[in-house]
Design a protein around this nucleic acid. Sequence first.
DNA 1: GTTGAGGAATGAATCGTTTCAGCAATCCCG
DNA 2: CGGGATTGCTGAAACGATTCATTCCTCAAC
Lengths: 344, 344
Amino acid sequence: MAVSVRDVAAAASVSVGTVSNVLNRPDKVSPATVERVHAAIQELGFVRNDAARQLRAGRSRSIGLVVLDVRNPFFTDVARGAEDRAAEDGMTILLGNSDENADREGSYLDLFEEQRVRGVLITPLTDDLPRLERLQGRGTPVVLVDREAADRRFSSVAVDDVVGGELAVRHLAEVGRRRIAFVGGPMAIRQVTDRLEGARRAVAATPGMTIEVVETESLTVLAGRAAGAGIRERVASDRPDAIFAANDLLAMGVLQALMMQGTVRVPEDIALIGYDDIDFASAAVVPLSSIRQPAALIGYTAVDLLLKEAGEAEDGGRERERVIFQPELVVRGSTVADSASSPP
Amino acid sequence: MAVSVRDVAAAASVSVGTVSNVLNRPDKVSPATVERVHAAIQELGFVRNDAARQLRAGRSRSIGLVVLDVRNPFFTDVARGAEDRAAEDGMTILLGNSDENADREGSYLDLFEEQRVRGVLITPLTDDLPRLERLQGRGTPVVLVDREAADRRFSSVAVDDVVGGELAVRHLAEVGRRRIAFVGGPMAIRQVTDRLEGARRAVAATPGMTIEVVETESLTVLAGRAAGAGIRERVASDRPDAIFAANDLLAMGVLQALMMQGTVRVPEDIALIGYDDIDFASAAVVPLSSIRQPAALIGYTAVDLLLKEAGEAEDGGRERERVIFQPELVVRGSTVADSASSPP
DNA sequence: GTTGAGGAATGAATCGTTTCAGCAATCCCG
DNA sequence: CGGGATTGCTGAAACGATTCATTCCTCAAC
């Protein structure tokens, strides 16, 4: 049934070695032969068997990527960037979605290791990293994504979330807000706590500013809606005058809940800022101010580091690298009333 | 460096065959031996090489899925459903994103075929299907997703887009609208033309109703915003009193553009309905009426058909199947002013 | 004590590709 | 025109897991 190099070789009256050369080093083969072999391939409908190639090569040409939530556009953007960089070297991204669930995270890691991926990019669920260390110890490079490596055990690509949180709340201060609510959770996720810490710094730097924390169970639109509803239902004097949401999904949920029945005006009564600057943020009816992270660039860079490390692994001289990007404030209508809508 | 079954066998003082049996048919091996082998595996940190397994087995344990746009939540939901069904049989989904680009679509198909995937699920770009036929002819079953197979050459899982379009516009008629604009494109995409056709049917069935078509370049928020801006800028008497957008991404763009500067009220001045019922639709500040498609179920069913077909292929008796789901109208605030917000 | 049945373990063959040492033919140059 | 270099091609070995015909043991039955 399946057509193999052997069949092609027979059909073109050459050896299997030559067929392989035509496929991989056509310049080493005479033009006439190349043509004959190609004709045979065409005629028989030969398709390389990647499993055999991989077996021979000892490793695959793919890279595993485990994200917290594929439904979050931030992560699909990261994936896109990773894919672009991978494609430059003829490699492929395998996308795994841990869904904030440790078991799923684990089974993707197992799968990727059995596939002998070139390396793993991961936004780990918790700070419990021994599993990743073992993986790396067995020869699969690991790069942490959107999470700074605490020490030199892993390479990492991240955005400074503390600075991002600070930016967000400093902006709220500048537009005159003083009673801040931070909406986010669970606190086990590092990004959440870092952003909160940044927020607290900005609060500390502004006389008269206060912050309360409204913890959520996840980083989704639904969780945001619940948190927002809670705030809307308070008596007006108890409400904050600004909300900093740990990501845009939450912020959009909060926004919807606040505006329900016209109780609360955004930004007049409550200013709102999110995090990630996903596409939907600018598309919201009150366009969302947010903290932009270079999502695609993060993915791109992560693959870059990975390939570099994988290359050097052979020489034994493994160099761990940490790349940190700076986040950027994007001001839109949800914090500044008359702000023109964003340009294209 | 790499630990193989041979090493494990040596460490446990058994043959390689026994190691394999421990891994795949532990009941055929005495308990004491099983334990010894497991100990050796643990100690050496042995991890199966999937490439070797695949090579031997002749096919992989994954299924390729090619979608038009990963950034569209509809497709991530399809992927999720597919993944669930695949997991039931211990299989994996490889996700490819054609991005409405024929070259990318093609390279994913090549890749998947080289990987000897169990089959391919695809939302094809155009109606030009010979390539898929060749693929299928070479032994890789193909299931069309969200696209009805014109004939019996392929299995398919789809939602009746004509009925969906009809539902949407009939609803607009029922809430008293008569001057409809259809926003969508490009017209090469089947889903778009089918939904338009359904819309036209509803229009034809309603005395005094008219429809105009505002064509877009893609099915994205950005394209929707452009189309919406065009409509907003018309003199009020030239504006439609209802808009049917070909998908929710477009609808959200349209919504944002319409409401800019308070020019147009939704739904009072213009009612708006989208398609897909993505999560963001209900989270929009004016919650979007939409046509719900069972996205996850589509993915689930597609894998189901694929596995069935792949199983039967061995007996030669290939059965092509077509499954068609019915879409469902979801009414929210963007078409009915006082409609309560959706329940959880 | 012999036979047979059945459980447990063996190890060579296999999957399809790539690699590489080696062979043959051709070419260049003194 | 002989010797070294170059070019084009060959075919066996290797990658690592699985399979399966075969061997080895034990124990029960007669």
